[in-house]
Every structure is written in structure tokens, then in C-alpha cells.
């Protein structure tokens, strides 16, 4: 599904990523992290849960968490897609995933992931960022992200690599 080149940032650096977004109806790859939509997961839950390969879930900005209670342990990653960075719903979905549904696995931000918001994302419970924006990747590589400290959060220096 992603048409742009993206890179995965996790634990303070860019890491290899074998995630494949699988369109509803397409076959799942055997040896990769297969990421499916909520609609597909709920429709094919029994088969997908029984499958051996690694599975991920992608939630669109307007998706809710209804129906996912108790299902989350199954996923190697949950991806929350920011349709536009100014649409902040994924932040609250992240909070509910972490605190209401008790999800402890990787929480990945994708879509409109930009330099000036990634600190909010990392503070808000995301621990991996899928970044398409070239300027943002360059800024991360050059260590040019300004971290404004906030009360009760990790010290500034730790925010960017706090994910591990």
C-alpha cells in the first residue's frame, strides 16, 4: 500500500523493516511482517490468528478500537496511520490502546509523520515511526530535532531513543 519510500525509525535509529501492507483480498506473504486492515482482521480473525507468520494491524485515523478487545497480543505491531498530521485522533487511539486495552507491543505511527510532531508521537506512546518525508529523515539523521521537555516525561535526551 505505501507508494512512497518509507523508513522505520525505532530506538533512536533507522532500522530494517520487512513490513508489507497487504490489501484486503490479497494473499499474505509467508516470510514478512504482514499488516492487515481492521476490517480484514475482524472478518478473517480465526484464520489469521491460526496462521504461523508475523501479523500486524493497521488502523486508519477514523477507525475505532471496537472489536479489538483481547485480540491485540496477536500482533507484532499495531500501526496507526495519520491521515493528516493535524488530525490528532491517533494520539488518543494510542492512549486507549496502551491504557484501556493494555497493548504492550510495538505501536507504530505512519502516514503524515513529520519532524515537528514526532516528539508528541514518541511521548504519546508510539515507539516506532514509519517516515516517508525526506526532510524529517534528514533531520533525524543530523540530530536536528528539538525536544521541548514536558513535565513528567523522560528527560529530553532520552525521548528520541526511549523507544526500546
Amino acid at each position: 500500500m505505501p507508494t512512497l519510500e518509507t523508513e522505520l525509525y525505532r530506538g533512536g535509529r533507522f532500522v530494517a523493516d520487512d513490513a508489507v501492507y497487504v490489501a484486503d483480498g490479497d494473499a499474505l506473504p509467508a516470510n514478512a511482517l504482514a499488516i492487515v486492515s481492521k476490517k480484514r482482521y475482524l472478518a478473517e480473525r480465526i484464520a489469521l490468528d491460526a496462521r504461523a507468520g508475523r501479523l500486524g494491524l493497521v488502523l486508519e485515523t477514523a477507525d475505532t478500537l471496537d472489536g479489538l478487545e483481547g485480540a491485540l497480543d496477536r500482533f507484532a505491531t499495531v500501526v496507526l496511520r495519520f491521515a493528516r498530521y493535524a488530525d490528532g485522533r491517533p494520539y488518543s487511539l494510542a492512549h486507549r490502546l496502551r491504557h484501556r486495552l493494555g497493548y504492550r507491543g510495538e505501536l507504530r505511527a505512519a502516514g503524515d509523520v513529520l519532524q515537528d510532531q514526532i516528539v508528541f508521537m514518541l511521548r504519546g506512546g508510539f515507539d516506532a515511526l514509519e517516515i516517508a518525508h525526506a526532510g524529517t529523515r534528514a533531520a533525524l539523521r543530523a540530530n536536528r530535532i528539538v525536544v521541548v521537555p514536558t513535565r513528567g516525561s523522560a528527560p529530553a535526551a532520552q525521548i528520541l531513543d526511549a523507544a526500546e
Binding site: 498530521y85 493535524a86 488530525d87 490528532g88 494520539y91 488518543s92 494510542a94 492512549h95 510532531q117 516528539v119 508528541f120 508521537m121 511521548r123 504519546g124 521541548v148 514536558t150 513535565r151 516525561s153
Partner: peptide
């Protein structure tokens, strides 16, 4: 004020 300053969840309402 302290709670809402740069609240990571509520900056893009």
C-alpha cells in the same frame, strides 16, 4: 496550565 502545556495527546484537536 501545566497539564495542558504541550500535552502530547491534545495538540491536534
Amino acid at each position: 496550565r501545566q497539564w495542558s502545556s504541550l500535552h502530547p495527546e491534545f495538540t491536534f484537536l
